[in-house]
Amino acid sequence: MTILTGLGFVLILVGFFLVHYRYAVYRYRVNDRSVEIQKGFFFRQLTAIPIDRIQNVDLDQGPLLIFCHLQKVVLVTGGSHHEIEALTVEDAKAFKDQVMLLAKEARHES
């Protein structure tokens, strides 16, 4: 029983540090045409999501993110979804508002 408790504590501690690691290696940029997400430290990945393809922006927050005062942003498109792992609560809400406004404007222009 002591081993399981110790293992659980180690997993929680590792998860806590991974949240801060993920927050440090994510970059995003929003412009009128796309949202660009760059992630990864050793293996970098750059994803560009066209604004007019974004259908919804969800904000998710599990227990660990709540503890760290962070939120995960999920960009939902017709065929997939893209995530920004950890933003501050204020940044996540501002990001959602900005992207949804740009997506609405892009759909009206089409």
Rank of each mutant, 00 (worst) to 15 (best):
M1Y: 08
I3H: 04
L4D: 12
L4Q: 05
T5H: 02
L7D: 11
L7H: 05
L7M: 14
G8V: 10
F9Q: 14
L11M: 08
L11Y: 05
I12L: 13
L13I: 04
V14C: 00
V14E: 01
G15V: 06
F16G: 04
F17M: 14
F17Y: 09
L18R: 15
V19C: 01
V19E: 06
H20S: 04
Y21I: 08
Y21Q: 14
Y21G: 06
R22D: 03
R22E: 07
A24H: 11
V25G: 09
Y26L: 07
Y26A: 01
R29P: 04
R29W: 10
V30H: 00
V30N: 00
N31M: 14
N31D: 15
D32G: 00
R33V: 04
R33S: 08
S34A: 13
S34Y: 07
S34C: 04
S34V: 05
S34I: 02
V35R: 00
V35L: 00
E36S: 13
I37T: 10
Q38F: 04
G40C: 09
F41Q: 12
F42E: 06
F42V: 13
R44I: 14
Q45K: 15
Q45N: 15
T47Y: 08
A48T: 09
A48D: 05
I49K: 10
I49N: 05
P50I: 08
P50V: 08
I51Q: 07
D52K: 15
R53E: 07
N56C: 01
N56E: 10
V57F: 15
D60N: 06
Q61G: 13
Q61P: 02
Q61L: 07
G62H: 06
L65G: 05
F67V: 00
F67I: 02
C68K: 12
C68E: 15
H69A: 14
L70I: 04
L70N: 04
Q71E: 03
Q71R: 12
K72S: 01
K72P: 06
V73H: 03
V73G: 06
V74L: 12
V74A: 10
V74P: 12
V74K: 15
V76M: 12
T77P: 01
T77L: 08
T77C: 10
G78R: 15
G78A: 03
G78S: 10
G79K: 15
S80A: 12
S80H: 09
S80R: 15
S80L: 09
H81V: 01
H82K: 08
E83D: 13
E83N: 13
I84R: 02
I84S: 04
I84M: 03
E85D: 14
A86F: 06
L87K: 15
L87D: 06
T88E: 13
V89M: 07
E90S: 14
D91F: 09
A94S: 11
F95E: 01
F95G: 00
D97P: 04
V99N: 03
V99E: 01
V99T: 00
L102I: 01
A103N: 02
A103Q: 11
A103R: 14
E105I: 00
A106D: 02
A106Y: 06
R107M: 05
R107Q: 02
H108F: 10
S110Y: 08
